[in-house]
Amino acid sequence: MATTTIEKQSRFQAFWNGKTFVRLRRNPRFIWGTIVLGIIILSAVFAPQLSPYDPVRQNLVERLQGPSAEHLLGTDQFGRDLLSRILYGGRVSLQVGFLSVALALASGGLLGLLAGYFGGWLDSVIMAVSDVLLALPAFLLALAIVAALGPGITNVMIAVGISNVPIFARIVRSAVMSVREMDFVSAAMAAGSRHGRVMFRHIIPNSIGPIIVQVTLSLAGAILSAAGLSFLGMGAQPPTPEWGAMLNSAQQFYRVSHWVVTWPGIAIVVTVLALNLLGDGLRDAFDPRSD
């Protein structure tokens, strides 16, 4: 695939030379993705300031209302303000996305680095395990892991993280393997630099491109999976506002007030869309051949 091929020139240099930046600036997908994602992140960060109401405060008299001047997006089955819950929900969803991808990147990246750098039996073992994990549909794997760990937002992060480990292991491995062959790296290795030094000074910075792209795309996937797990009741616990969990608990009310189902869904779609656009823009910039 395009993301995994590495050009023979140093990515790192291209990055600083500005070619990538120039391409990014001209890429409408990257720009739109960044703007929308920026707005989402800001509104999540400033949720306490922006929210008109306490997101967990119930008002049973005002249950299941449609949008109005007091409640711009209406209220849920407990009379809680949907706008406030959507804003706070963004914090949870983004946090889950970032932390689970960070987990996948750290552990998958390390495994891929070891496999690609040292090769041999270590490589075989790591790749065999990742083959096995990849043989299971990712969502099913995450579901089984959450079932084992128990429901809860932390466990969802771990499960989604683990199910993403093999992807990162593979990408990092192939990036490392191609960088390894480059002259300046072989030179460093031949000159007797310590392994750790070679990895961190030369290999990691030079394989950063495809990794950034994969991080962005995995973020989108992670947010979707986490919402899906919460939707099945395995994720965020009440009264925590989380988009998937909001959909889960609102399900039975959709015939009376479809707002309770509509808004959290739109929030997920917009966030994932922004991340996908951003990721696609980044991919174009790092690897101009595709598209």
């Binding site: 919402a227 899906g228 998937g244 869904g265 779609v269 917009v270 996908n276």
Partner: peptide, 8 residues
């Protein structure tokens, strides 16, 4: 289409 969660 790629951004729409299946369940939603």
């Amino acid at each position: 289409m790629l951004a729409i969660p299946v369940f939603w």
